[in-house]
Write a protein that binds this DNA or RNA. Structure first.
Lengths: 136, 136
DNA sequence: CAGCATCCCTTGAGATACTG
DNA sequence: CAGTATCTCAAGGGATGCTG
């Protein structure tokens, strides 16, 4: 059977594109950095190596689960290095790798834009929402 | 009752920090841009105004729902302008606003880093995953 | 053409409790 | 100290069908 319905061809075009989207480097990076705690953790580590409990205290709203998950993903990506010092009690330090450090200027540029412009974005949101309410 | 348990104080510290996280401009920006289709749509619009159906065809994997949702959010943020030309059939164009255009260099820098370094990230992932399998 | 409405499933993420 | 394990809930995101 080489005949295929239009629906099948369309579905294939979709998933083929989804594969390309997933393969797009910029997208994959943005999805990772866009995760809730990733940017915060990177920002903390930019100041130098930090211990797990130290990070947990600084990012007061993070649960152990999310902190570990975030650090593990960054470690898996090669952006963060995890160092265990066998002692009692155990000492675990997290630090940016060279690759991780090379990312920081990009993050800084993003943060700079945000600080300069997010108030405009906020204003736009308020005006948009107000217009929505009027027309409902 | 002014006495409060440790758990209550901790919960308060958490939510207080969550408010601050949500208020952090850089985080809010990254969460928006990290959404699945946002960066793709911005990239398309960087080349000039585009029609809805045009975008839908170019981003072959997107459903109408997600495309509309993405465009609406960008419009609400003041990054994209929506222009309806009343005709038959209707013609709707989306274009970057000045604010949206000012964001593009930042996105470009991010994309550049990604293109130069995501293969290293990929390699790190493979080696991390291989190490995991060995120890399981 | 440019969507909206509905259903459904997966994932993200928080709370809570326990451990080497 | 530095996690792991389990549960739960809401949100994100996709499929499908309908409409001004």
């Amino acid at each position: 059977m080489t005949t295929r319905t239009a629906a099948e061809r369309q579905a294939d075009a979709r998933s083929a594109h989804l594969v390309r989207v997933a393969a797009c480097p910029a997208n994959r990076l943005l999805e990772r950095v866009g995760e809730k705690w990733t940017a915060l953790v990177l920002k903390e580590l930019a100041g130098g190596p930090r211990r797990y409990g130290d990070l947990a205290r600084t990012l007061a709203g993070v649960t152990p689960k999310m902190l570990t998950q975030t650090l593990r993903r960054l470690e898996r990506d090669g952006l963060v290095a995890r160092t265990v010092t066998p002692a009692v009690p155990v000492r675990v330090e997290y630090a940016l790798t060279a690759l991780g450090q090379s990312l920081m200027p990009v993050l800084r540029a993003t943060a700079d834009w945000a600080e300069r412009n997010m108030d405009q974005v906020e204003a736009a949101r308020r005006s948009y929402d107000a217009a929505q309410r009027r027309s409902s």
